[in-house]
Computed example of a mutant assay.
Amino acid sequence: MSASPQLTLAVGDAVRVRANDYRARRGQGPDLLNGYRAVVTAIDDERRVQISWRLKGRGGKPREESAWLSPDQIASGALSLGYAMTIAASQGMTVDTSLMYGHGANAFATYPGITRARSENHLWLPLAVLEDETTQARLGAARSEKELLQRAILAFAHYLGQSRPDGMISDRLREPPAPAVLPVQAIQERPVAHGPPAERAPAAGAVLPHVEQEEREQAHRAPVPREQPVPERALDDETVLELSEDRQRQPAELQRQRAMRAIPSWTDRPFGTTSDADLCWKPGDALQRAKICDQGALHDGEKARALAERLTQEKAQGQTKGQRRAADAIVLLDHADNNLRTAREELGKAALAHAAVSEARARIES
């Protein structure tokens, strides 16, 4: 982002889109999404800027898209220079050469920051910022480039050693709920007596002898306050339905509590101790490796198809490449045998001539 209120652009500048603009919904061209990396391709007299970017189309083939931005959109912060970006924004990218400013990057951000390039990764370490004041006062200024590099690396390594992975607030997903309270059956059914009406209750107006005696005894006693009987409430259909639903929920709640207790701690789960930075980096790195493997598989597949076609053609011709080379070798061997046979004959003739010369010389000398 530019620190000044003005943004100077020229054709060929690398820029980044900083705000979403869903133009396709309005029928005004392709969407501009926050984070797009683009190149300035044109600037008109009204200070409008045209940017172009590349996207993957169908079948993985790249396609280029362009859009114009007005001065008001640029002034609102919708566009900025794109020569530098944060490490988080660069995750998943692969470039030829990367330049990283190391100050402020912990151990979990440094690794993805220095693995973005195919050929060269450069790391800038400001010694004046990384090294503490006590060490600077003790050692003074660096006397050589080698000492400067060593001190910067040591200071940065000490800084990285203080990094700690991001932890969770709690090692438990949630507090276990309170034990379920079983509903109390407060309403009980009244027992029903069987038999003729004369056996269940005395006739109206009749007083039994033992009841009359108890009434006379209580008349001479001190009055004792009686508890008011609680009127029995009829069990309506809604109450019965609520009680049955509670009974049905109890096993489900107990089962849920057992399932919550069975969940392992975050320290025992896969990737439980992995930091957020690594979790963000791992998918991008896996996708990048998968892309490389796909490219290698595609290349090997093309080689295999070419080899199969060549073998098919040679089979149709009735002679393979190896057979042709073997035939050429046989011709050379036959020619060598003929030359060897001729050489032996010439050696025999030379030996006879040498013997004849020796015999003639002996005769002359005698």
Rank of each mutant, 00 (worst) to 15 (best):
M93D: 05
L7C: 04
T97L: 09
H335N: 14
E133Q: 07
S119M: 07
V184D: 08
M85V: 00
H220R: 15
R23E: 05
E302N: 09
V17R: 00
R200T: 09
P197D: 06
H158S: 15
M1W: 07
R164Y: 04
L254P: 05
E175M: 12
M1L: 11
A262L: 04
D337F: 06
T239S: 12
R190E: 10
N121V: 04
S170H: 11
L182R: 12
Q91S: 02
V17H: 02
A329G: 10
R216P: 00
R26H: 12
V181R: 13
E302Q: 14
Y36A: 03
H354S: 15
L149W: 02
A67W: 02
D237Y: 07
Q150R: 11
W53D: 01
P270K: 04
A308N: 08
A327R: 12
D13V: 00
Q313W: 08
L311A: 12
P231C: 01
T342L: 14
H299I: 14
A356D: 10
R226L: 14
S4R: 08
R258V: 08
K282T: 12
P229F: 09
G301M: 11
R325M: 06
Q313I: 07
S2E: 14
A356S: 11
P183L: 00
A157F: 03
P177H: 01
S4K: 05
R310N: 04
S80C: 09
G92I: 03
W281S: 05
Q250H: 14
R172M: 11
L311N: 10
V49T: 01
M260L: 15
Q228R: 15
V207N: 03
A107F: 08
K349R: 14
L69K: 03
